[in-house]
Design a protein around this nucleic acid. Structure first.
Lengths: 241, 241
DNA sequence: TAGATGCCAATTGTATACAGGTTGTACATC
DNA sequence: GATGTACAACCTGTATACAATTGGCATCTA
């Protein structure tokens, strides 16, 4: 593995994990010291993270850790609401036996409420499950887009202290999506996926956000999606039921 | 504008415009000579183009112009079929007066059949229209994804000698989408956008591809989308009509 | 002759020196 | 005291030297 790739992965992980304050300025020299690499691979890593919208680069000024904003949070969910169900439906048609096994493995987590370490693991499993389902669509674009959405979304979830009882609902919804994919029922998978995203949004809005971001948290709690963004699911439900 | 940005834009334009053969290998030295820059900005430009899937980088081996494949063509359309209608629906709700004016400007092109230069301009206007509609959704993620999809799709359209009479249909469909957005009718915009994408796919499959890619062309002609990918539009039509 | 092995040219990955731009500060001027 | 300007420190952008890796080719061996 080259230095550039290593720095990219480690820095990315640190940003997602909250090692840097959102909006904070970081210099190349700083990153070179932290990751033990020279400027060239550090620059390359930062440029890739810019493409992933985890870092903002202002020419001749420096690098800034992408801030967490209500607009981005809403945007991510709007796109997810469109991408996830479509990918789930395709996965139900095209997933290989091996891909289904892999999906089932990620869906079989145990979330022990109240444990911080368990919560972090839980978020990673959740992320992997979503990406794995998208990959099973047989369309790598869906997988790439999903990976980017999840990486950016997880930063918001890390703000949350814990999800407590929510983990149970979430696991249940995941299993329903997986069951539909395994049963080769695209429309059920699509509907379950839509419901899951909408419920996740609803759950997030009632969460107990970490105090240092209380301003953002209260703003997030006031989000409401446009009618046409929700419409995706409603149409399906009406049609199916 | 920095060298890196300039090289990125020019190289990107050259790849999209077909200046390089798909799959061709290019060395850093070659690109340095061609664009009159040193290796550092050339490398940065190539890394960004890799993120956009226009170049493949194999470590220690070199850069390869992304090949045109049936799988990619299908993947791009599958994602477009999901992104475009959703963005159009949101645009109908949230587009500003200025954005609507901008969209109308891009929709008002005149395509003179048979003229090669006119055809290229036509493709650019088409691309800009799609991106502008996505931007009017008020969600920059839709705009970014659309810009990437369009950049990659246009390489396939450049293979086509001309679209002849198709330009007329296309312009008509575009105007219908724009009309729905201007009239603030999200569901009509969504439906018209879905139809437009599906019709574009159908039109492409019956096209006269340039001979040097006849193998790819015949493969493209045999594409068929999965039922659940088409389902998006059918549901809406049934529901509306 | 088929296959394995070691060397070498070519190319990319990394480190670093140098150039260019930006920001903040100190000082002169009004 | 407010404002504008010059300068300096700092940082990023670019160029280039050096290190590491690859793949092909020649050579050797069975």
């Amino acid at each position: 593995m080259t230095e550039a790739v290593r720095v990219h992965l480690e820095l990315r992980n640190d940003i997602i994990g909250g090692e840097f304050a959102p909006g904070a300025s970081v210099s190349e020299a700083e990153l070179c010291a932290r990751y033990g690499a020279s400027r060239t691979p550090v620059r390359e890593a930062c440029r890739r993270l810019q493409e992933e919208s985890l870092i903002h680069i202002v020419p001749f000024r420096g690098y800034f850790i992408a801030p967490l904003t209500v607009a981005e949070f809403r945007n991510l969910h709007e796109v997810q609401l469109v991408i996830d169900p479509a990918a789930a439906a395709l996965a139900a048609e095209r997933a290989s036996a091996e891909q289904i096994r892999s999906i089932e493995r990620w869906a079989n987590y145990e979330y022990h409420t109240g444990q911080k370490s368990s919560y972090h693991t839980f978020l990673e499993w959740n992320q992997n499950l979503h990406v794995e389902i998208a990959a099973a669509s047989g369309n790598e674009l869906f997988a790439e887009i999903t990976a980017n959405l999840q990486a950016r979304l997880i930063r918001y979830f890390y703000m949350v202290i814990s999800m407590d009882s929510f983990g149970v609902d979430l696991a249940q919804e995941h299993r329903e999506i997986v069951r539909a994919i395994k049963a080769r029922k695209p429309e059920v998978a699509r509907q379950k996926s839509s419901e899951h995203v909408l419920k996740t949004i609803a759950r997030t809005m009632s969460l107990d956000f970490a105090s240092q971001n209380s301003e953002l948290a209260s703003e997030i709690n006031s989000i409401s999606l446009e009618p046409s963004a929700r419409q995706s699911m409603q149409t399906r439900s009406r049609r199916r039921l």
